[in-house]
Design a protein around this nucleic acid. Structure first.
Lengths: 143, 143
DNA sequence: TGCCAATCGTTTGCAGGATAACGAGCTTAG
DNA sequence: CTAAGCTCGTTATCCTGCAAACGATTGGCA
């Protein structure tokens, strides 16, 4: 049955490899369309989430975006350095660090959201609309 | 048409986010099944490719696996540190660094290939076989 | 009330991934 | 045959991501 002959392993056909390539292409499109001074993929996801839900603790932000605590810290630190986000202690719970958008971020966000929609369209461009919907369903099921 | 209202942007439904989550889950399965002393995802892809094609230059390896030169260097350096790979100058072209498997790698590879097949199966477990094939086709088309 | 467990944030260390810039070697056109 | 241009590898810098270990705070339970 499942033996270990390396010549019997088609790397190009493995899901893991295909997922990596597809995500890699998406990130390249993201960076190209968002441009030099735009946010990175995870920075944008963070900003949109804060815009929709209001100030959040780093931990909650991480759980919503599937980032672990060290990664959240890195993203928030870089957003802070760019003046897009501020951090302040929660008055009610001294463990929490609430992250909130700055006015600069709120001003820039609409333009970035429009670009993000173009990025999704560009990523899905090779597929028909029905295939795009099928892909979304399959990827969701994979979780 | 495509305006920039952030509350009109469903992050969970974007392909980029779904691709990231799916790949993230795959990597977790990879690491869990391969175990402590097993290779990482990219290290394994490198070893299998070298096993199938024989010694390759870093650059060619990178093109086959979709890694850019700095990334290849990092992966090869770590494989060298683990004694799984050696590097030597190409006699015919002094620019090339040929990367080749060590006997230790050839001995360990069959066991790792068997695990890699289990990883693919685990990644695809939530899908029916026909859905798995559909997903592979859609991801391939996305390139 | 007082202590223990859970939660939150941080740090460190490792791995992958991209860009930009550079030096060294090969190849080809003039 | 020489000079221009291409290829290859390396370095540096930045961003994402995971695990493990740690200090601080909170909350619940004995």
């Amino acid at each position: 049955m499942s033996d270990g002959d390396p010549s019997d392993y088609a790397l190009e056909a493995q899901v893991g490899h295909l997922l990596r390539r597809a995500y890699q292409r998406h990130l390249a499109l993201f960076q190209g369309i968002m441009g030099e001074d735009g946010p990175t993929s995870m920075q944008f996801a963070t900003l949109v989430t804060l815009s929709q839900r209001g100030p959040l603790s780093q931990n909650l932000l991480g759980r919503m975006l599937a980032m672990d605590p060290p990664t959240v810290k890195g993203v928030v630190t870089r957003l802070m350095a760019r003046g897009l986000v501020v951090r302040q202690k929660d008055p009610g719970d001294a463990r929490l660090l609430l992250v909130a958008l700055t006015p600069a971020a709120e001003a820039a966000l609409p333009g970035w959201v429009a670009k993000a929609k173009a990025i999704t369209a560009a990523t899905l461009a090779p597929l028909s609309p029905s295939d795009a919907a099928r892909l979304a369903r399959l990827l969701r099921d994979l979780t």
